[in-house]
């Protein structure tokens, strides 16, 4: 197609919906942003990509010693190490993805001010970086399953685990773009996010199983946190335990809600971004 035939209109009074076609046109830039961040992140470190293994691995070791061995936390028929690691790698998609996207606008402020591209590409690229870390730690996860002889039902695993990752991703993109847009208007978010994420870790069943909550109301309220459903489902993929689909349903619904809310908030603030960045 000759781009000369392409006419464009910039009108102060027009309100455009989220332009998916345009995001698709800029997919290479999305790739390059993610590629740059991954490359730069690991290029200079001595251990390189190994860091993506080491962090969740050490975390798992410590959790296993304290909560698994010493406090005997319940772990839904899984070895506690596997139980905790599953929770951690799913949780890390969310925690690092959200923090990365909330920073993405400010760290790339110079580029935003001088170039045009759909701004949403930046938080999306930040989430892709977290997904990359997840995929790396997934290799270690496989090793861990073999080591502890946890042999999941293949069909059940293929059906549940990617679904769990999908819930986590949708949630992360949703919160990521909300925080990304807000951090441009209110710099407070940058300071407050790591703290908030830490708080959230405790109300998410990462180190304990959601089934350990005996109060039925509280149990369902906790599922409003989409990460609760995502982590429960990821664990269910490894066992033959029955799945509480109400929990998964509530969490998936919330994930989609957060995602749509995120897109709306981002769209509303998008035009402000280059003026305030």
């Amino acid at each position: 197609m000759n781009s000369k035939d392409h006419t464009f209109v910039i009108d102060a009074n027009s309100r455009k919906p989220l332009n998916l076609k345009e995001i698709w046109e800029f997919r290479e830039l999305l790739y390059f942003f993610a590629w740059r961040d991954i490359k730069v992140k690991y290029k200079q470190t001595f251990l390189g990509v190994t860091w993506a293994f080491i962090q969740p691995f050490l975390m798992m070791l410590v959790l296993n010693i304290f909560f698994g061995q010493m406090l005997h936390f319940p772990s839904e028929t899984l070895p506690y190490s596997v139980f905790a690691f599953t929770g951690l790698i799913i949780w890390n998609i969310f925690s690092s993805g959200t923090i990365n996207s909330s920073n993405s606008m400010l760290t790339n402020a110079v580029i935003i001010k001088k170039n045009y591209f759909p701004r949403i590409i930046l938080p999306l690229a930040a989430v892709i970086v977290s997904l990359f870390d997840f995929l790396v730690s997934f290799i270690l996860f496989g090793g861990l399953l073999i080591w502890f002889r946890v042999l999941p039902d293949v069909l059940r695993f293929i059906a549940f685990f990617p679904f769990a990752v999908l819930i986590a991703l949708i949630t992360t993109v949703g919160t990521g773009v909300i925080i990304g847009a807000m951090s441009i208007r209110f710099r407070d978010f940058r300071i407050v996010m790591p703290f908030l994420i830490q708080l959230l870790l405790f109300i998410t069943p990462v180190i304990y199983p959601i089934s350990a909550i005996s109060n039925k109301t509280l149990y369902h309220v906790l599922a409003l946190n989409p990460m609760a459903g995502a982590i429960s489902l990821a664990r269910a993929a490894l066992t033959h335990n029955p799945v509480d689909w109400i929990i998964i349903g509530i969490s998936s619904g919330m994930a989609v809600f957060i995602f749509i809310l995120g897109m709306l908030i981002f769209k509303k603030n998008e035009t402000l971004i280059s003026d305030l960045a």
Partner: peptide, 27 residues
């Protein structure tokens, strides 16, 4: 014109791809 920021009022129509070089070496 290059859509980095939006106008408060007014309208621009154009044909073809617009690229802005406001600074060299961004990114």
């Amino acid at each position: 014109i290059s859509r980095i920021t939006s106008p408060t009022s007014g309208r621009i129509t154009g044909r073809g791809k617009v690229t802005s070089l406001l600074e060299v070496g961004t990114g």
